[in-house]
């Protein structure tokens, strides 16, 4: 079937289906084995290639939507509001990192001091749950690649896949 005759969203649906099937297969492997290494390394290599090929070499600042018409740059938005829109997230991530480190360094059994990885390990006994976690990891990787491709402010043109060759010259970069 020609590409222009396929229903909209077929590509995303096919990728999701392929990712789900891959995650189901990957969940059947056991950690610390060659099969597990290989099925984990393949998405890592694919993402590395996509990042090199699809991400712009010189990313531009992210525009932050403001209430009202138009949008302003992230920095201007911060000054306008007088508050950091990422601060609460940074605090949360810092708290998670501190608690993860505390659990990792604490004396005693891992059961008494669970870490994120030990809690995830507990899911490994359930094939469907492990597949779900693996699928989530794949989706997160795809999301990261897509977000990194959006390198231009909305006002400067259409937002979407942008390759390194579509970038303006050095003098045009803010």
């Amino acid at each position: 079937m020609p590409a222009d005759q396929r229903p909209p969203g077929w590509r995303e649906a096919a990728l999701l289906l392929a990712g789900a099937a891959y995650a189901l297969g990957a969940a059947a492997t056991s950690a610390f084995t060659w099969p597990a290494d290989i099925v984990t390394a393949i998405p890592i290599v694919v993402l590395a290639v996509l990042v090199v090929v699809r991400w712009p070499r010189r990313p531009l600042p992210l525009p932050l939507p403001e209430p009202g018409p138009g949008s302003v740059s992230l920095e201007a938005g911060l000054a306008h509001r007088g508050r950091h829109p990422f601060r609460a997230w940074v605090v949360l991530f810092a708290a998670v990192a501190v608690w993860e480190l505390a659990g990792y360094l604490a004396r005693g059994s891992r059961g008494a001091h669970p870490t994120l990885s030990s809690m995830t390990d507990a899911l490994d006994r359930f094939h469907a749950l492990k597949a779900l976690v693996f699928f989530g990891w794949l989706c997160l990787g795809a999301w990261i690649v897509r977000r990194g491709m959006r390198a231009f402010p909305a006002a400067a043109g259409p937002v979407g896949p942008v390759g390194p060759h579509d970038l303006p010259g050095p003098t045009e970069v803010r």
């Binding site: 950690a31 610390f32 290494d37 984990t40 590395a48 976690v133």
Partner: peptide, 11 residues
């Protein structure tokens, strides 16, 4: 992202 995947599923 790479480290998380490797840590959780491979090693």
């Amino acid at each position: 992202w790479m480290w998380v995947g490797w840590h959780l599923f491979a090693r």
